[in-house]
Design a protein around this nucleic acid. Structure first.
Lengths: 335, 335
DNA sequence: GTGAAAGCGCTAACAC
DNA sequence: GTGTTAGCGCTTTCAC
């Protein structure tokens, strides 16, 4: 293991000078710099982040809190896409990513303690229960945080324009001639679910469509296919069923589609369906799902930018809303 | 920021004693231990991993090298599932996960340097080009490694039983009465692709089915839908087309299915198709895809176990093969 | 431009 | 059982 002392000795300079070279200090002569760099590469030197972190209190590490509620963790298609983009942006700015669990050495701790233990410079957290004491503690700490799919006055946040997305979905169905438009919601417990339902209601209002409580069927806040299936059945059992459904998530929509088929009906002939997310699967099912696409690349990179900005410059509590787009496929029909 | 010195002073003991308490040394009296623990929690103490790593040379961090070739990174449904399982096992044993990029401070380096920089105790790498100099260097280093979807004498590996899986697929089609069974391969450049093709060929041999070079159509080593689509068209253009196809990946199979449909034919009436992987989508497309399921949970946890074992005990170069199962759905028909 | 000295928070001999 | 001491590899005053 080669240290700056080895290089210093070999190059005939002091450890301080070696350190300065590796930290791009300007007060080192070009000649000395070259000599140091040469011997360093000759000896196979590489810096040690632990030693550096110990003294500078900067780890160049970002913590990733994957606290979603489906139990899918990193397999979750939406969050993994956002994380991939976050990761690329963070890496290009010199940061590495580390998952923050609730364990240290196999023993249970809080997220905050884990962050301090690892000296992370900042934290990105996805779809969490802000109620959980564990997280509140983190938000209230001095560690810069950015949250996905949330709005908070205490931390930076990034989320899709859920309301506008819902509006686009409903408006599209309306433009196709539908007036009995139902909603399969993600429940009021999830941030996105609440927003999307609100967007649905606002859209009805704006388009002067009657509001009908029966036309809002609650899916699970986990956005599961099964709950979409159940919700659709509930809607189909109505005396006057809707002709179109806007589901708060693609999985809900896919479950709903299945329910329609299982009644011997077909999509889009007997029922038009629009989803939200544009998960990969949506383009491949039959009929291909018309849905509101979330811009995962933008969500991830904006989150990284905000977080790094509040680490390096000043802790701005930005709340970014990323635009969404309706992707028209084959699950809707004009009537 | 509270250090062990603060606690030592407050509790009236030496820093060593405090350290011993936190490292579960047995030679501390119960009374002293309690006093230390109490003052520590009262003062809000937490250990500092950098300081600890600096002296022990153990970071309790595992590096994750996500070097797959589809460009999907962590979004890749198969690898993200394996990683999720790996992560859970690793965390339960006290390790945290960090992504290893080819950058330090935004500047390009090698994976090995990055690992040393971060003092990772071991590395898990997925689906990589072993040829890449960057990786060879890492494999040949003293850092314990485990590879997914690979076989190597130089490092621990974990992969599915590709050959047996292919055999099950072909045998199933054969049991349905098919004898003109084609293969859409993942190419010879990918480890899994080569194995699955070999399994296909071995199966034909064992079942005394004639081998026909035309019945092997190469898909992309990225296992894309488009390449499956193209390969299927190639097979359909044959004078005597196959009646069944075993595709080396679900995405290839899905592309193949589309090609059949686009010719006005249908699956499974005119063509039986079996895939490999069992990605989430496979259960939801129409017809639901019969496929060979990889046990991602086992792959991930076995990889973690092997890696941690070679870190903590001795560097065994285990090569684990995880069994697979055929999941029968609706994409095949008896003839 | 360059270097000597101190110290980040912790652990590991070793002495008591 | 407990404490003293040294030092992990690095950066940072501050003096020259």
């Amino acid at each position: 293991l080669i240290t700056i002392y080895d290089i210093a000795r070999e190059a005939g300079v002091s450890p301080t000078t070696v350190s300065k070279v590796f930290n791009d200090y300007s007060d080192v002569s070009a000649k000395t710099r070259k000599k140091v760099l040469d011997t360093a590469s000759k000896m196979g030197y590489f810096p040690n982040s632990s030693a550096r972190t110990l003294i500078t209190k900067r780890s160049w590490t970002l913590g990733v809190l994957f606290m979603e509620r489906t139990g899918k963790g990193i397999r979750h298609p939406f969050f993994s896409a956002v994380l991939e983009s976050f990761k690329n942006t963070a890496e290009s700015k010199g940061y590495d990513l580390m998952f923050i669990s609730q364990f240290i050495g196999g023993k249970k701790t809080s997220y905050l303690e884990h962050c301090r233990f690892r000296n992370v410079d900042g934290v990105v957290a996805v779809l969490l229960d802000l109620e959980q004491a564990n997280v509140t503690e983190l938000v209230n700490s001095d560690i810069p945080c950015v949250f996905l799919d949330y709005e908070s006055a205490q931390a930076g946040t990034v989320c899709s324009d859920n309301i506008n997305g819902s509006f686009q979905a409903v408006q599209y169905l309306h433009s196709l001639g539908h007036s009995r438009i139902a909603h399969i919601s993600g429940g009021q417990n999830s941030f996105a679910g609440a927003k999307r339902q609100l967007g649905y209601e606002l859209a009805l209002q704006k388009l002067k469509l009657p509001k009908n409580e029966d036309y809002i069927a609650a899916g699970s806040c986990f956005y599961t296919e099964e709950s979409g299936y159940r919700a659709m059945n509930q809607l189909l059992d109505l005396d006057v069923p809707p002709t179109a459904v806007f589901a708060a998530g693609d999985n809900l929509a896919i479950g709903a589609m299945q329910a329609v088929k299982d009644r011997g009906l077909s999509v889009p002939e007997h029922m038009s369906i629009v989803g939200f997310d544009d998960i990969e699967m949506s383009a491949f099912i039959t009929p291909a799902l018309t849905t509101v696409r979330q811009d995962t690349a933008a969500l991830g990179s904006r989150a990284a930018e905000i977080l790094i900005h509040s680490i390096e410059t000043v802790c701005t509590l930005e709340n970014v809303v990323v635009p969404v787009d309706l992707v028209v496929r084959n699950s809707c029909k004009a009537i």
